[in-house]
Design a protein around this nucleic acid. Structure first.
Length: 346
DNA sequence: AACACGGGGAT
DNA sequence: ATCCCAGTGTT
């Protein structure tokens, strides 16, 4: 039997029940695909539920404020997905009168939609024969066909896309695409794949040459850099504090944080005090400084290790820009800040 | 081509 | 520790 037939049969017997598999409405498929980029099903699932509840249609999403979209996205990471999602919703409503793009080519014009997502939506919603290539597909194909081209090289990207496009079931592109991803996610896993019960083990090159753990080949990325963050948790006698919006490019764009002093290394209270004394928010005012977390919190991102200390700065009163500590939960914050807010219990 | 972009889970 | 995750955008 040919590859796609075996795969689709496996899928019909083994697929998980997931909410986005109950619909073919492009808005919902799009939502699920954006949420699931670089995100495991278990992590993305509650966000899919809350987004479909709060924004049942692309019109609801388009008319929301970005701050509300980011608040709902809080904790999921890769926040450009939320910003692009919102921008694309506004584009669909304004420029396309709410009619969702219905081809790979037009889907690609949406912010945050690249080759993978355009292929997924086009195939699932419109039966377009466009093969998806995600992390699962790289793994399944590299192992079965014994392809050792690095998956994150430009050559590899083209090669695997062409191979997937060759294999896809022209009559059932939606099933094929979802099947190969589901197969990679639940059976042909990175570690300890279930080769003993695999319907492909007879023909799988990696299995038969015993090189399962050598494939796929991936070029290693640079190591994470250390950064040293000192967050200033101002507290005034009338129960106010300060949050600032991160406007710049980089991590956490458009999310909120406590005023930040970044240093080249961990600093103690004596080093930090003069810096705070000159801080715009309290220049010339008396203050008391204390360290909240004795143990440095190391928040690990893909490319940065954030060595973090929270400093409580008690002051008499705060100028403008301050907010009531009662309102602090209304702001979208990175999980690092969110965990502090929860522990500090304002 | 190389890098930035989060947070959680598995090993 | 290290790798991976229904990838995309920028430089």
């Amino acid at each position: 039997m040919i590859f796609s037939k075996i795969l689709i049969r496996w899928y019909s017997n083994n697929k998980r029940e997931l909410p986005w598999r109950l619909t073919k409405a492009p808005y919902y498929i799009w939502l699920s695909e954006i949420i699931l980029q670089q995100t495991q099903v278990n992590q993305g699932l509650p966000y899919y539920i809350s987004f479909t509840e709060k924004f049942p249609s692309v019109f609801d999403l388009a008319k929301a404020d970005e701050s509300d979209v980011l608040k709902l996205w809080q904790g999921l990471g890769y926040y450009s997905r939320a910003r692009n999602l919102h921008a694309a919703a506004k584009y669909i409503v304004k420029e396309l009168r709410g009619e969702f793009p219905n081809s790979y080519k037009d889907l690609l014009k949406l912010k945050g939609v690249g080759d993978y997502t355009a292929s997924a939506i086009a195939s699932i919603c419109f039966n377009e024969v466009t093969a998806v290539v995600d992390g699962n597909v790289y793994r399944v194909l590299s192992r079965y066909f014994g392809v050792d081209t690095p998956i994150n090289s430009s050559k590899g990207v083209k090669e695997f896309k062409a191979l997937a496009q060759e294999l896809i079931d022209k009559k059932k592109p939606a099933d094929f695409n979802q099947a190969i991803m589901e197969f990679g996610a639940t059976q042909c896993k990175p570690k300890n794949p279930d080769c003993n019960v695999c319907p492909f083990n007879k023909g799988c090159i990696a299995f038969n040459k015993n090189i399962i753990n050598k494939l796929p080949v991936k070029i290693k990325s640079a190591k994470a850099k250390n950064k040293y963050f000192n967050f200033l948790v101002f507290i005034s006698e009338d129960g106010k504090t300060v949050l600032e919006k991160r406007e710049n490019k980089g991590i956490w764009q458009n999310l909120y944080q406590f005023p930040l002093i970044e240093t080249n290394a961990n600093v103690d209270i004596n080093t930090l005090k003069p810096l705070i004394k000159e801080h715009d928010l309290i220049k010339g005012m008396p203050f008391e400084l204390s360290l909240y977390n004795k143990d440095i919190i190391v928040h690990k991102l893909s490319h940065q290790h954030l060595h973090t200390r929270f400093w409580v700065v008690n002051v008499n009163r705060l100028k403008d820009k301050s907010i009531s500590t009662n309102d602090i939960h209304n702001y979208a914050v990175p999980i690092l800040i969110g965990n502090f807010i929860e522990a500090f219990n304002f």
